[in-house]
Simulated scan of single mutants.
Amino acid sequence: MQKHILIPTDYSRNAFNAIVYAFELFKKEECVFHIFHSYFLFRSAQGNILFPEPEPHEYDAVARASGASMLQLKNKVELLADNPKHTVYFDHKFGTLIELLEEKVKRNNIDLIIMGTRGITDDTKVAYGRNSVNVIESITGCAVLAVPANVHYKRINEIVFPTNFKSEFNEREINTFVKIVQLEKSPIRILHIGKEAELSERQRSNRKQLESYFEGLEYSYHWLEKTGVKEGVLSFVDDRNSGMIAFVNRKHWFFGSIFSNPLVKSLGVHSKVPILALHDLRN
Rank of each mutant, 00 (worst) to 15 (best):
I49H: 13
L50R: 13
L50A: 14
L50E: 15
L50C: 09
L50H: 11
F51C: 10
F51R: 08
P52E: 07
E53T: 10
P54K: 06
P54I: 03
E55R: 14
H57P: 00
H57E: 15
E58A: 04
E58L: 05
Y59N: 03
D60H: 12
D60N: 12
D60T: 12
D60V: 05
D60I: 05
A61V: 07
A61Q: 09
A61G: 07
A61H: 10
V62K: 14
A63M: 14
A63G: 14
A63P: 11
A63N: 15
R64W: 09
R64K: 14
A65N: 12
A65I: 11
S66G: 14
G67A: 15
A68D: 15
A68W: 08
S69G: 08
S69P: 00
L71K: 14
L71N: 13
Q72W: 03
Q72P: 00
L73K: 02
K74M: 07
K74G: 06
N75K: 06
K76A: 04
K76N: 01
L80I: 09
L80V: 04
A81D: 06
D82R: 10
P84Y: 02
H86I: 02
H86R: 03
H86Q: 03
T87K: 10
T87M: 06
T87C: 07
V88P: 05
Y89S: 05
Y89F: 10
Y89D: 03
F90V: 03
D91V: 01
H92Y: 11
K93D: 07
F94K: 09
G95L: 04
G95E: 06
G95H: 08
T96S: 10
T96G: 08
T96C: 08
T96Q: 08
L97Y: 10
L97S: 10
I98H: 08
I98C: 04
L101T: 02
L101N: 02
E102V: 00
E102D: 06
E102L: 01
E102H: 07
E103K: 07
K104E: 07
K104N: 06
K104D: 07
V105Y: 03
V105Q: 01
K106V: 13
K106P: 00
N108T: 10
D111E: 06
L112P: 01
L112I: 09
L112T: 04
I113V: 09
I113R: 03
G116W: 10
T117E: 08
T117A: 11
R118Y: 06
G119R: 03
G119L: 04
I120W: 10
T121M: 11
T121R: 15
D122H: 12
D122V: 08
D122K: 12
D123S: 07
D123H: 07
D123V: 06
T124I: 12
V126M: 12
A127T: 15
Y128H: 11
G129H: 10
R130L: 10
R130H: 14
R130Y: 13
R130P: 09
N131I: 09
N131S: 15
S132L: 14
S132D: 08
V133P: 04
N134T: 15
N134V: 14
N134Y: 13
V135Q: 02
V135C: 04
I136R: 06
I136E: 00
E137Q: 13
